[in-house]
Design a protein around this nucleic acid. Structure first.
Lengths: 125, 125
DNA sequence: ATGTAAATTAGCTAATTTCCTAATAACTAT
DNA sequence: ATAGTTATTAGGAAATTAGCTAATTTACAT
């Protein structure tokens, strides 16, 4: 279960447009490029990418993109793995699964409570 | 459908602890109090509350809480309705429903893509 | 009318965030 | 060993955010 602190970190991470776009493209494989595939003998998730490849998609400096990626990592919505001198970035689907479940629960509970309140036929013990 | 701009507003709104707690309690009815119910002849959602009642739960000034509520409203995750000299605050479940659907879609698509990639039996035309 | 309650606006400060460049570290390739 | 690539760290400037008090607006109650 995600505690409040981690939820706050996730929302903060996703509240910045650059980070949001990095997140989106890491999840959909939008940044995978030949550069990454060329690295021989490296086994990674086929949609993984690396910091400098991500940076190519933005008009921001590499250190700026590196810092954004660090924040996404600390929110645990992506994960990184160093192989050679590259840092490979992958989606962390488990955290997103948990967040998705939180929202679903919120919606379901809300609907149930509304039904409880407005439905005359509910029997109360 | 929520566009990126609105998603960014929602994540920003929920990234601050005070706003997160206001949001949480507006959705779960945590702030409803006798003060609100005493107001005769006013028909509101039974879990609605008002700005000053929310403010009672925090060690921040009323203007500060009012500004936080404004931000939650502009992210369309709560809605407000003025009745008399009070502003009643209610959950905006539709936006949360949409956001929940977005995360579900993300998870589902991710799982499908992974299956597509790793399942040998997939026939490619 | 006058006073009280609820909320917002205005104007300000302190803290945080977001960006940069320069320097450093770690690894690869020649 | 030396040069090149990838990434992070450090330090600083500009912009934004989060808080405050004081003033104002709007509605209710006497």
């Amino acid at each position: 279960m995600l505690d409040m602190e981690q939820k706050l970190k996730i929302f903060k991470a996703l509240s910045n447009e650059t980070r949001f776009l990095i997140f989106k493209n890491v999840f959909t494989g939008g940044y995978t490029c030949s550069l990454d595939k060329k690295q021989a003998g490296v086994e990674v998730n086929p949609i993984a990418t690396c910091v400098s490849t991500v940076a190519e998609h933005f008009n921001f400096s590499l250190p700026t993109i590196s810092a954004h990626i660090k924040e996404l990592k600390e929110a645990k919505i992506i994960s990184v793995e160093k192989k050679g001198n590259k840092v490979y970035i992958e989606p962390n689907i488990e955290t997103i699964r948990e967040l998705s479940a939180c929202f679903q629960t919120l919606v379901t509970n809300f609907d149930n409570n509304r039904e409880l309140f407005f439905n005359d036929t509910v029997a109360v013990k």
